[in-house]
Design a protein around this nucleic acid. Structure first.
Ligand SMILES: NC(=O)c1ccc[n+]([C@@H]2O[C@H](COP(=O)([O-])OP(=O)(O)OC[C@H]3O[C@@H](n4cnc5c(N)ncnc54)[C@H](O)[C@@H]3O)[C@@H](O)[C@H]2O)c1
Ligand SMILES: NC(=O)c1ccc[n+]([C@@H]2O[C@H](COP(=O)([O-])OP(=O)(O)OC[C@H]3O[C@@H](n4cnc5c(N)ncnc54)[C@H](O)[C@@H]3O)[C@@H](O)[C@H]2O)c1
Lengths: 209, 209
DNA sequence: CTCAGATTGTGAAAAATATCACGACTTATT
DNA sequence: AATAAGTCGTGATATTTTTCACAATCTGAG
């Protein structure tokens, strides 16, 4: 799609930069250096400059970056000028927490529809977000992104139904590794794995770098 | 600590391997190849063999890996033979979801204590996990790992108090980037960033690799 | 107008990670 | 016993990501 793809590692940091720039802007700050940014987001300043440089020369030597300009640039790069709708699948413990969360400080992504299999939950609304039955996936309409917070053993089958109904990006919180066409982008957030990895690091990597 | 450190990328995959091996073992499977593992966990088979090889020769050429042996090996490598206690800080939407979650399928990490500032919550129990006041951090006793699910603007101050009380690893779900001594290991899970990054990838990286 | 100090953008190097591809060995079959 | 098929472990290579380090340039003070 984009001809000049930026590195994935860079892409993953963009939202972080964007959020911090928003903070700065709200504080009325006019300029910022890669050094200040670095301290705030905990990314090496050279990495930040390199990241920015993929988009051209956004700053001024000897001066730094203009906050408002940079913010505007990232806003359009990250499509934050318009709302991106997201669906949530599985209104359980975790799913309900997400629905209740005011996801959206400095961020134009919104969960606008939820789906569940439980008749008790279908038809309700949580914070204005309607809960539909998982069999009514045509209700997805134009939504392209789904958050998976349902039981792991349902994940694969449901993910594939989502894809049939137009979903192209999935944020998967279940421990299941789902199998979908490779044109579909899946990101995993696996809390148990994260915890175990953290414990491993503590045990085996303490102290020195 | 460990003399022969394995790559971080490898360490992050170990819990994933461990979980899948557990599944296989429960299904009564006796052997497994890197190819099968690869399909299940969605990691290239050469990467899996390389990962394993950091620990020595765990498999047999022409045969594959013995499930039980490998499982036992990872169990001790990941300290799964004994329970690792974890504290949760901030019993709100997200924190409550974690407390309610039966975190612990094939996994010996347990949240055993929670802390909050809200007098309404302090003194209660959620699924047998007591909620203490955030000023009573000596109740942490020997716990080394904390999960941060409190408001972002409290994160930095509380994180530093946790460190003073013996915490050495933090899993931070708040959007705040906390500043702690560098001997402390912090992993961030930033849901908003993950979502935005996913949307960015969809928009700019569709189709081809 | 000049100059000291700050800060970018980027070539080059380093480090980390992933993948290829094959020799060596194992198992199972005939 | 010989052979075919399967699979590991790993040297070598490729790719990705991070970091160094500095010339080029801008700002702001005097
Ligand atoms: N809660 C946590 O803290 C936590 C932590 C890590 C991982 N997870 C994972 O997140 C997922 C959800 O966890 P949870 O604690 O919210 O579980 P939960 O049981 O509370 O919620 C699951 C929800 O999914 C719904 N559901 C079941 N089958 C469905 C289907 N076919 N289609 C649509 N909805 C369906 C259920 O009705 C329920 O509302 C699980 O896979 C879990 O492993 C949860
Ligand atoms: N809920 C979500 O889906 C979600 C998603 C992404 C990120 N987060 C982040 O996770 C954090 C928690 O979110 P939430 O929705 O659970 O918020 P919440 O407001 O529901 O819960 C916060 C809890 O922290 C407690 N608290 C406040 N100050 C405290 C202190 N000093 N010490 C201890 N506890 C204190 C509050 O009493 C409350 O129980 C926030 O930083 C939020 O940005 C939440």
């Amino acid at each position: 799609m984009d001809q000049n793809k930026i590195p994935q590692a860079t892409a993953k940091r963009l939202p972080l930069y964007y959020r911090f720039l928003n903070n700065l802007n709200q504080q009325g700050k006019k300029r910022v250096s890669s050094k200040e940014l670095s301290e705030a987001v905990k990314v090496d300043s050279a990495t930040i400059r390199r990241d920015f440089s993929y988009f051209g020369a956004l700053g001024k030597k000897g001066y730094g970056y203009n906050v408002e300009y940079l913010l505007g640039f990232f806003r359009s790069t990250l499509d934050q000028h318009e709302i991106t709708e997201v669906a949530l699948i599985g209104v359980g413990n975790l799913g309900t927490a997400f629905l209740n969360y005011n996801f959206m400080k400095n961020n134009n992504i919104r969960i606008t529809k939820a789906f569940d299999a439980d008749p008790e939950k279908v038809g309700k609304e949580i914070r204005d977000i309607p809960v539909y039955h998982i069999d009514d996936l045509e209700k997805l309409a134009n939504i392209k992104v789904a958050i998976l917070t349902l039981p792991a053993d349902e994940a694969d089958a449901i993910a594939n139904k989502l894809v049939e109904n137009g979903i192209t990006g999935i944020l998967n919180f279940t421990p299941a590794r789902i199998t979908v066409p490779k044109s579909i982008r899946v990101h995993h957030i696996d809390l148990a794995v994260e915890l175990q990895a953290l414990v491993y690091f503590l045990k085996h990597y303490s102290l020195e770098k």
